[in-house]
Design a protein around this nucleic acid. Structure first.
Length: 279
DNA sequence: CACGGTGCCTGAGAGC
DNA sequence: TGCTCTCAGGCACCGT
């Protein structure tokens, strides 16, 4: 599932291939591919040049030489592939952008948006202070210069809900999904159901720094391809799944204390943790 | 304002 | 073999 490390891998891959290119056509093939809030059809970006590829948390956007942007979210199963238009269409191809190339030999002439479960979307949006409208309410992620650890800790400390759903709340800290939330809590030795108010400031800091560290390691590994849905722009899987300590490892021994990893369901999600390390 | 619950979606895998 | 059911979890939205 694409969380910050996977989206960052896709962002970097896109940046490598598409910056400076002009979009020569843009088509959508599924009614849900374009977000209903999009201010224009996908064809509105035809003729625009891609200036940069940006990310906040799990949101991605192409900065164009226009006063609007193309924003993308991968949802559960979205992929953005950069490949040749000669390559046959994938079964869940939802949209594609053709790139004008200066070199006739360039084979990476298409961005394809593929999405099995259709929770992902593209959207043409206004850009205000460099941020697209659908990203305006999203909190800074821990890799952004503006991320303010102290204020995030203070905000979390006041909350009456459990730490796990709080880590998943993109309006408090962005980029963390179910996999990295479980991994961060295991690293910080904190039980997912502990109420935020009951944690000390240093415990909250530890969870956040653990989240940043585990996500940094995952970026280095090219992301986690746990359910075969996530791929980078070249269609390759990341290999961080082998480095996961708790997610998807119910019943296996904890690598710190050998106690069996437990899986519980709460807040409509599964949580994996070590019942001995995380009290 | 804070927070919990629900809906959207498809294919893999389980169970019969 | 083939049917039906459950599960996976991203975000938006709604009600309390």
């Amino acid at each position: 599932m694409p969380e910050l490390p996977e989206v960052e891998t896709v962002r970097a891959g896109l940046a490598k291939y598409v910056i400076g290119k002009r979009i020569s056509s843009a088509q959508s093939f599924h009614p849900r591919a374009l977000k209903p809030a999009s201010i224009a059809p996908l064809s509105a970006i035809v003729g625009a040049k891609i200036i940069s590829v940006n990310r906040r948390g799990k949101f991605l956007w192409l900065k164009l030489d226009r006063d609007f942007t193309l924003t993308a979210h991968l949802g559960m199963s979205g992929q953005l592939l950069v490949q040749s238009s000669k390559y046959p269409a994938q079964s869940h191809l939802r949209a594609k952008l053709s790139l004008q190339s200066s070199s006739l030999r360039s084979s990476k002439d298409e961005i394809r948006f593929i999405d099995q479960r259709t929770f992902g979307w593209l959207s043409v949006e206004q850009i205000i202070k460099d941020i697209p409208t659908s990203v305006a309410h999203i909190a800074f992620d821990p890799f952004e210069a503006e991320f303010d650890l102290k204020s995030v800790v203070a905000k979390i400390k006041k909350r009456k809900s459990a730490i796990k759903p709080t880590l998943l709340n993109q309006e408090i800290i962005s980029g963390i999904g179910n996999i990295y939330a479980d991994e961060a809590l295991w690293r910080a030795k904190i039980h997912p159901e502990i109420v935020c108010e009951d944690l000390s400031e240093s415990e909250i800091k530890k969870v956040i720094s653990s989240a940043k560290k585990v996500m940094q390691s995952a970026i280095t590994a090219g992301g986690t391809s746990f359910d075969e849905q996530y791929k980078n722009v070249n269609g390759e899987a990341g290999y961080f799944a082998r480095s996961l300590s708790v997610y998807g490892r119910a019943g296996e021994p904890c690598s710190r204390c050998r106690t069996g990893i437990r899986r519980i369901a709460f807040a409509n999600r599964s949580s994996h943790f070590c019942p001995r390390c995380q009290r």
